[in-house]
Amino acid sequence: MTSFTLNGAAVEVEVPEGMPLLWVLRDELGLVGTKYGCGIAQCGACTVLFNGQAMRSCQLPISAVAGAEVLTIEGLGTPDDPHPVQQAWIDEQVAQCGYCQSGQVMQAAWFLSNNTDPSDAEIDAAMAGNLCRCGTYPRIRQAVRRAAEMLAAPVQTFDPLTDSGEG
């Protein structure tokens, strides 16, 4: 039995200790917003925030998740109440097929929690681990910049684990 905090709620799962968080989320807990793309940390589609840090959930055995706080795309915001990063993704109409975008959004949310005034080069460096086969990169850049502005506008600290996006 492994216990951890998922999107603010306590959960317990009984799975083999080597099972990656990605598959626990998708197949055991039914949270399918986190995507399987490669299984070897090359595409970033499975990115979640693990104790506030962007991590590839395909590389996190559930044994390493015990006691941790995990935030997935579903916990970041919702269609009715999107997080500022999600709102920026909507405003900039980033998605084509959309399959990589959960991971892109989570990576950007983590990045902007550490850097609210990023340069173009910093954006590229932060997002380079997230592969998009459709080639939405120009709009990802625009959306990250827009999200940075949205997050910088109100005088408040941004905590990706608790902020569900009043913006």
């Binding site: 998708r26 197949d27 039914g30 399918v32 917003g33 986190t34 995507k35 399987y36 997935t72 795309i73 579903e74 970041l76 915001g77 919702t78 269609p79 999107p82 999600q86 709102q87 993704w89 909507i90 109409q93 980033v94 998605a95 959309g98 399959y99 975008q101 959960s102 959004v105």
Partner: peptide, 20 residues
Amino acid sequence: QRLDTVAKSTGTQTFGIDLM
């Protein structure tokens, strides 16, 4: 706005692989 933009920005778009 593309009809799938909000869903694809919030992880709520269901793809074939997500059906359970």
